[in-house]
Amino acid sequence: MPPSPAQSLIPVFDGHNDTLLQRVRHRSSDLDRDFFTASEVNHIDLPRARDGGLAGGLFAMFVPSQIGQDFSKPFDPRDPANYAPVDQTEALRFTVEMIGEAFRLERLSEGAVRVCRSAAEIREAMAAGALAVSLHIEGAEAIDAEFRALEALHALGLRSLGPVWSRQNIFAEGVPMRFNTSPDIGDGLTDTGKALVRACNDLRILIDLSHLNEKGFWDVAALSDAPLVASHSNVHAICPSARNLTDRQLDAIAESKGLVGLNFHVAFLREDGGHSRATPLDVLVRHTAYLVERLGEDHVGLGSDFDGCLLPAEIGDVTGLPRLIEAFRTAGFGETLIRKIAHENWLSVLERTQGS
């Protein structure tokens, strides 16, 4: 593999993408692409990651309610079938398939992709110019109530998880994809969900609060001894989507010395909750500035939702990251703050949660 042309860019460690899902879902279809060749399909492949300065991230493993769904068509948040329960055995099978894809990419990459099990391994991969892949579960349907699967997945490299996606499971209840709505919807953690928090603390698995409803958020805050982290959520005071965080939630994350990763999905950014790609970078900067003011400069990162969202046209795909970095500069963010947002804050919270 040739040296990365992105070495002169500010490296980005991103808190959320759905690339593994897209690769597994598109296998043997017209949308299947070689990860090591640049294309215009999806948001991330290795050449485009290098061009955009993406040095690593939490690579999510999400199990759709409709596993056979055609992902070439836009996700319809109004279709109740997209929120149906998922069988644990089937969810585990599909999750292992995504883990297998991560290790397959690592094997074929000749050292250019590394699956990392610690912040120290992430730093080593980034220093070597390799793409650092940290395995993350979005919605814990793959995990059984006795946590045997959790132990096995942890041994395979799982280092962070969100108990729910935007649907209910045995652990908790997720927030719907609704605009002009509070995240205070439904009940909090179940007894099994509370046990999951304790199990994750014992294994030093980061607990992701994105998608969790507000009562569940406060249950995690009361139980967990780790920093509170929302990997890909925005500011409810700017965009009142149920997926975004209220000021009170942001204050709790700040008190725990946790982190919020900025989500690039246009409907979680815009004041009108609209799905227009004509969403200027200034809107992302506004959310970021609000988060920095509320949380402090050490507790804000990026959580793009690449390969799982509708991006602003000015970003387009992972190669648009330098344009966002430049928008931060234009807004008066200093280089120290930009580096913290780009990668340093994520590595710090992973070290404090998972150990070095």
Rank of each mutant, 00 (worst) to 15 (best):
D202K: 12
L245E: 05
R117E: 11
A230G: 08
H16V: 04
I185K: 06
R117Y: 03
F103C: 00
H232A: 10
I207S: 01
D30A: 15
E344G: 05
P80H: 09
G308R: 01
R243F: 01
S233Q: 03
A49D: 11
A237D: 13
A222P: 00
H136T: 13
N234P: 12
N234K: 13
D144R: 07
S166Q: 04
S8G: 14
L158A: 09
P312S: 03
V113T: 10
R107T: 08
G316M: 07
A221W: 00
F103N: 00
P64Y: 03
L21Y: 11
A221N: 05
V24D: 00
E293I: 01
V197W: 07
I185H: 12
N180Q: 14
Q22T: 05
H16R: 06
T190N: 08
C309A: 15
G316W: 05
Q69I: 11
D30H: 10
T19N: 12
L161G: 01
A252K: 12
L92P: 06
L284K: 13
E124D: 15
V285R: 07
G355H: 05
L135N: 08
A140Q: 07
I315M: 04
H16G: 04
E106C: 12
L206S: 06
N213W: 00
A128S: 15
R198G: 04
R25F: 05
V229W: 03
I325C: 03
R159Y: 01
A313M: 11
R243T: 01
W165K: 02
N263D: 09
V133R: 02
L324G: 04
L269M: 09
V41Q: 13
C116Q: 04
L135H: 08
H343L: 13
F147L: 13
L228V: 09
L262I: 14
R198S: 14
L92F: 13
L259D: 08
W218C: 03
L92T: 07
R329M: 03
G129I: 08
H287Y: 08
